[in-house]
Design a protein around this nucleic acid. Structure first.
Lengths: 258, 258
DNA sequence: CGTAATTTTGACTCCGCTCAATTGGCGTGG
DNA sequence: CCACGCCAATTGAGCGGAGTCAAAATTACG
């Protein structure tokens, strides 16, 4: 059975969180109430009254610099993390040392849910740019979701959505052709950027071709060729990591087509 | 937000469950306490005192005949299902009608967790042999897991394990060669059969080559060729759907880099 | 018992991989 | 500021693993 370190709300932010000032102006930075990612994050759907209590789950903030890992496969599990800013990849490494990227994550999304079951994180979580996360001790989440049904409900929603997302990736890897995979990825990324107020058509990829290839079940050269192909077809404009979507309908057509 | 139909424990088994006889001899068939799959099912880890309450979650039993679906993608979500006996596949159908099998499930495993988030099941769940499931209304699970921490804990464990399983499938689909995929599948199936008291080496596949191929991201002809290949190599003995593992170490060798 | 469905096997094809060379971007230090 | 080195990305040529198409064999099932 998983061993979860016990956290008490009163212990909140006794370390790791230099911004904690109980009644100070900077409290602004700590609260979920004032976080614009709230609705897609763990507290989504929790009413304002309960929100004040839920905020106590955020035990601390943690900065993770580009290239650093938030947690590694096998690390003891004690918390899940909400991305406050930045971009992450999660991955597994098999016995032969081969990496499989299992996902890319951005603001408002949760990391570490793969650790709940075994008491150890199952995969790695690495920042692809300088990032900041909210540390949410899972024992606190469980405690509080026993008292706040809306939180419980949303926790289950978030866990379930990760399962749905994973099944989507299985579909991508199991039955799509290379160009369909990349088109699916671009459309998905675009949608997620829009929700966060960024451009739907103009963005900077944080991952290398190799990492993207791993996620899509393709080799980096194939990914590169596909980008060139899509550009030639007038669907996108690529310049290294910068991508501009020119014809989103055309990308969707890539999926529908044959 | 998901709409979950409310169930009250008192409503238990008012229909769909002909075996419900409050103090009768057949109560034996209904209780989790007497179910040998208990430990790998939802009530796993719940102490005997609480178990009596948890049993009330099992609202009814439902028989699903071979070929019938337990639920379909898009159906309103209200319950998760524990497999009491039988064998299921879960799948997604994409816009073009292509099927992606997302998993195979057997006794003690849970189905339907993909529906929690959206209030609708995301995929299909189809019996590959005559089966029986325990119907567990999710609103009851949530209600009771607010009161019974051990149940809450195990619910989260089960959800998390599904995520871990899915990531394993991504690794399989994203970075393994065809023969590694089939070897991985056979080893996994063998382990799960053992836990349930069946032979580790001798079993009857419930799925067609096509369904297995879909799950493994291969064409049915490729699966068939691989079975023949493994047989020629003395790793297994195949006769249509019957498989006997002759050299489990050899199968593991297939994984340990060619 | 006959018909449909599934599985096996063969021959050939092609998509994505491998190997290799080149180009481009960017930080560091002279 | 430019030269250098490093890493990422692009592109080409050739190859091979798995797919496609087809036919035969075997089994399941009404």
């Amino acid at each position: 059975m998983p061993v979860v370190v016990a956290f008490k709300p009163s212990q909140k932010a006794i370390f790791m969180n230099p911004t904690e000032i109980p009644n100070g102006a900077r409290k602004f930075e700590v609260t979920c109430s004032s976080c614009n990612l709230r609705e897609m994050c763990l507290p989504g759907g929790v009413c304002v009254d309960d929100l004040q209590r839920v905020e106590n789950i955020v035990y601390a903030r943690r900065r993770v610099r580009r290239g650093e890992s938030l947690f590694k496969a096998g690390d003891a599990f004690s918390a899940v993390y909400a991305i406050r800013s930045g971009f992450f990849k999660t991955s597994l490494i098999d016995n032969d040392g081969r990496e499989q990227v299992t996902g890319f994550f951005m603001g408002g999304e949760l990391l570490g849910m793969d650790g709940i079951g075994a008491g150890r994180y199952n995969g790695n979580s690495i920042a692809l740019e300088d990032s900041e996360v909210c540390v949410m001790p899972f024992s606190l989440i469980e405690e509080m979701s026993r008292e706040i049904p809306a939180l419980q409900r949303h926790l289950h929603t978030v866990l379930s959505r990760e399962i749905v997302r994973d099944h989507g990736v299985m579909m991508l890897l199991g039955s799509m052709r290379a160009e369909e995979r990349l088109a699916t990825f671009l459309i998905n990324l675009s949608r997620r950027f829009v929700r966060r107020g960024y451009s739907s058509s103009d963005f900077h990829l944080r991952m290398t071709r190799d990492e993207l290839g791993s996620y899509l079940g393709l080799k980096l050269e194939t990914v590169s060729r596909l980008f060139s192909q899509f550009q030639k077809d007038g669907l996108i404009e690529v310049n290294q990591k910068h991508v501009r979507i020119l014809d989103i309908a055309g990308l969707e057509q890539v999926l529908a087509g044959k």
